[in-house]
């Protein structure tokens, strides 16, 4: 089952001068194709301004295509009659946790989404509890969100999305403002959800390490998809990634540096254990 499918997706917006007159068109997405199956973990990489967030906003119809088509769980996002269903299917988590938490108590915040969808009260409480359990924040249910750490706030934001029971979660740089442990917390939470609930995960990130467990990586540049493949395929192409202002995980970089200096380690190493194994074989 295809969860997210895009064909020749184009998004254009008008460029205006100071007086508000249209002076040209900007093409933020240029014939993008994307296929994400139910339960997959897909990472989208690309430099600032490459079109990643614009693409993400098409996944729950915050933006609709100027050309081509985006289907979410089989529904065309341009069909306004399907808007609620599209938003139910795909939940979004953004970069700054402080901008997406509105409740004064954690459980109230998590319940806001389902309440808005008209879910009956008893059912809301069940979902709030499930959502908070899934992200490991149940013991904070009665706390004030503003006393939480960044990683905890992001987990509450994820619980809020989960409470709407989406089939797919789109995370747009969810860890950009977090410390290393906060980053780990959020990623671990997302991975567990995938395993336990078969939720589809789309992760947009500037941290290459966060993409190594993805089923597929898409690299964007100038509104187009310019690279597509498994993490091993993508991170094996160091020079190309650098051209797109990206990078590889530090472990991959070290493996590459050792290869460059004549050591026989395999291409596309992603994990610490793999590199350690490869070096041990040589000694």
């Amino acid at each position: 089952m295809e969860m997210i499918r895009a064909r020749e997706l184009v998004y254009e917006y008008e460029q205006r001068d100071d007086e508000g007159n249209v002076v040209g068109m900007n093409r933020a997405l240029d014939e993008v194709g994307l296929d994400v199956r139910q339960g997959q973990f897909v990472a989208i990489l690309g430099h600032n301004g490459s079109g990643k967030s614009t693409l993400a906003k098409h996944m729950n119809a915050i933006l609709v295509p100027s050309g081509g088509t985006m289907w979410v769980n089989g529904r065309d996002t341009r069909d306004s009659g399907e808007l609620v269903n599209v938003r139910r299917s795909a939940g979004m988590v953004f970069q700054n946790p402080d901008n997406q938490i509105i409740g004064t108590v954690v459980e109230e915040d998590v319940g806001f989404g389902p309440e808005n969808l008209g879910v009956p009260t008893g059912e809301i409480w069940r979902r709030v509890e499930d959502g908070l359990r899934a992200v490991g924040m149940i013991e904070y249910r009665a706390h004030s969100p503003n006393k939480l750490s960044g990683g905890q706030k992001q987990r509450v934001a994820i619980a809020g999305v989960l409470a709407m029971e989406p089939e797919c979660i789109v995370l747009d740089e969810p860890t950009a403002m977090l410390d290393p442990v906060g980053r780990k917390e959020v990623l671990r939470t997302v991975q567990e959800l995938r395993k336990r609930k078969n939720v589809t995960v789309i992760l947009i990130t500037h941290y290459m390490e966060e993409a190594i467990d993805a089923d597929a990586i898409y690299v964007m540049e100038g509104g187009r998809v310019v690279m597509q493949g498994t993490p091993r395929e993508i991170f094996g192409r160091v020079d190309e990634l650098k051209r797109y202002r990206l990078d590889v995980p530090q472990v991959t970089m070290l493996a590459e540096e050792l290869r460059r200096r004549g050591l026989d380690v395999p291409c596309g190493i992603l994990r610490r254990e793999e590199l350690v194994e490869a070096i041990c074989r040589l000694s």
Binding site: G46, H47, N48, Q95, E173, H206, M208, R245, L246, D247
Partner: peptide
């Protein structure tokens, strides 16, 4: 460098 891409960082 928060929020910048790798080359930007």
């Amino acid at each position: 460098t928060a929020g910048l891409d790798p080359a930007g960082r």
